[in-house]
Design a protein around this nucleic acid. Structure first.
Lengths: 150, 150
DNA sequence: CAACTCTACCCTTACGTTAGAGTAGAGATC
DNA sequence: GATCTCTACTCTAACGTAAGGGTAGAGTTG
């Protein structure tokens, strides 16, 4: 499960391109978020994180905001949402945060949408607790059986 | 995510076949383990849990031991092992438990194999802890942002 | 030129989801 | 009591999905 299989860098010469101080290429984004290039591109395919620009040559260019967004997604992942759901939720919170010019109806609908996800998240946290408990139990059992044989 | 989509029973007439008091069919096994029929059959495809018998008509017949084995697998699942790895591990522990007639070499090899899995399990437990923490964090953040808007 | 990135495409895991056909067992009929 | 039939249950086979992994061949950037 290598996080960066494509760019075969191993402590060797890295470019460390600041590019232009405002944008970074996919490699740097991957390094910062600890996600693979493939994952980042896949997120784009599903519309989850679209690069804020492209170079003339077609390279994806990202900003700090993109880094932040990916970090949010990373925290969401364990909750078991699908990428589509995450996109949906992020869109909702984005628009709530922007907050400019949305009538009361829409505002309410957005809030409701987020609330639903929040509840699902809470449930999923419970499931994770159960899983962790099971896993600990299993690991302990396995360890005990090994010790029993010295 | 219905656990039993195939047999369209909903509080209605269930067969409750004891069959012969020793074996049960796949439906009962699924109910007891809370796994889907598809999952159980899939486990068989990968050689993880093979029914101890078949009826003349070809129905899978399981024993209590099979129930136990599936429960073990259920506890293993959160550890993120592949089905192949689980088969491997189960095979190793089974042979250690049987314990009859295996030379010292093989015994040692088996122990080593199990130890490796045990270590992987411990690592995975740590990852689960991290994930749980992240998930909790995210859920809390989401909740806070909702509260902020009353 | 070296390091990096691009698109396109096939591979993988762990099942879900039909589809179509056969089976188990219990009651109804002869 | 043998056959019929009905329903609940099960079978195999095969395609579909999500979330990426990995590769190839070509182009880009510093």
């Amino acid at each position: 499960m290598p996080a960066r299989a494509e760019n075969a860098d191993d402590e060797k010469g890295q470019r460390i391109t600041g590019v232009d101080g405002k944008h970074m290429q996919i490699g740097e984004l991957a390094a910062r978020t600890e996600l693979s290039l493939r994952t980042i591109r896949h997120y784009e395919e599903t519309g989850l994180v679209v690069p804020s620009a492209r170079s003339q040559g077609g390279f994806r260019l990202y900003t700090e905001a993109d880094v932040a967004r990916l970090m949010v997604i990373r925290r969401m992942k364990p909750l078991g949402f699908t990428l589509d759901q995450m996109r949906d939720l992020l869109e909702a919170t984005d628009r709530l945060d922007a907050g400019t010019g949305l009538d009361t109806d829409e505002h309410g609908a957005l809030l409701e949408r987020v609330r639903t996800y929040q509840q699902a998240a809470a449930e999923q946290v419970e499931k994770l607790r159960v899983q962790l408990a099971r896993a600990e139990d299993f690991a302990a059992t396995l360890g005990a059986r090994l010790d029993a044989r010295a």
